[in-house]
Simulated scan of single mutants.
Amino acid sequence: MGNSNKKITTCFMFNGKAEEAMNFYTSVFDQSEINSVFHHEDGTVLHATFTLKGQTFMVMDNSNKQEHPFTPAISLFVTCDIEEEINRVFKQLSQDGKILMPLAAYPFSEKFGWVEDKYGVSWQLNLISPLMNLDTR
């Protein structure tokens, strides 16, 4: 794992769907893998880590059985390198979820979309064009 000096890692707490969500996310994004999974005796996830596009995340299942929903007030902002990638990822994440902002051109982006996936996690997807990477200072 190349981020051994990293001090802050995003951690998601799911209500019994941590392993399913982790498998889904690693199937959606290129350069992704599951690093480790530890289970409770009942099969739910005690602690797991996975990597998406070089970024490490942690997941666990809620052991107190109370519902703690996600909110779009915190989202994952993903920079996509090519149009095919943003189209594919948007389609996969929005399936059985909901579209918060349709995939389109906006004044701040050539192509942008915001979705809440079927697990309630919010994703902002942005296509960076070569022209937008120019330093205009």
Results as ranks from 00 to 15, higher is better:
residue 56 T to F: 00
residue 93 L to W: 05
residue 131 L to D: 15
residue 34 I to W: 07
residue 21 A to H: 05
residue 3 N to G: 09
residue 53 K to R: 04
residue 68 H to G: 04
residue 47 H to M: 11
residue 105 A to D: 13
residue 93 L to R: 09
residue 98 K to C: 06
residue 30 D to E: 15
residue 3 N to F: 02
residue 128 I to S: 15
residue 101 M to V: 11
residue 83 E to H: 00
residue 21 A to P: 06
residue 12 F to G: 06
residue 89 V to I: 15
residue 68 H to Q: 10
residue 9 T to M: 15
residue 12 F to L: 15
residue 131 L to T: 14
residue 105 A to V: 10
residue 88 R to Q: 01
residue 70 F to M: 10
residue 88 R to D: 01
residue 2 G to V: 09
residue 98 K to Q: 11
residue 70 F to Q: 09
residue 4 S to T: 14
residue 121 V to D: 00
residue 127 L to W: 00
residue 4 S to Q: 14
residue 103 L to R: 12
residue 121 V to P: 01
residue 62 N to P: 02
residue 41 E to N: 12
residue 115 V to S: 01
residue 32 S to L: 10
residue 101 M to R: 13
residue 67 E to C: 10
residue 121 V to Y: 03
residue 82 I to Y: 14
residue 137 R to Q: 14
residue 100 L to D: 07
residue 131 L to P: 01
residue 131 L to K: 13
residue 21 A to S: 08
residue 136 T to E: 05
residue 1 M to G: 10
residue 116 E to Q: 14
residue 43 G to T: 08
residue 79 T to E: 10
residue 125 L to R: 07
residue 34 I to N: 04
residue 81 D to I: 02
residue 67 E to A: 14
residue 127 L to H: 07
residue 9 T to D: 09
residue 72 P to E: 00
residue 70 F to K: 10
residue 137 R to T: 14
residue 133 N to L: 14
residue 73 A to N: 12
residue 36 S to R: 04
residue 24 F to E: 05
residue 45 V to N: 03
residue 93 L to M: 06
residue 66 Q to E: 15
residue 116 E to A: 01
residue 83 E to A: 04
residue 71 T to M: 07
residue 30 D to N: 13
residue 52 L to E: 01
residue 54 G to S: 07
residue 5 N to D: 05
residue 76 L to Y: 08
residue 95 Q to R: 12
residue 123 W to V: 12
residue 99 I to R: 13
residue 39 H to Y: 14
residue 47 H to D: 04
residue 45 V to T: 09
residue 99 I to V: 14
residue 58 M to G: 12
residue 91 K to F: 02
residue 66 Q to V: 10
residue 68 H to P: 00
residue 71 T to L: 05
residue 130 P to L: 09
residue 32 S to G: 11
residue 109 S to V: 12
residue 4 S to M: 15
residue 29 F to E: 02
residue 130 P to N: 14
residue 96 D to H: 01
residue 114 W to D: 07
residue 112 F to P: 06
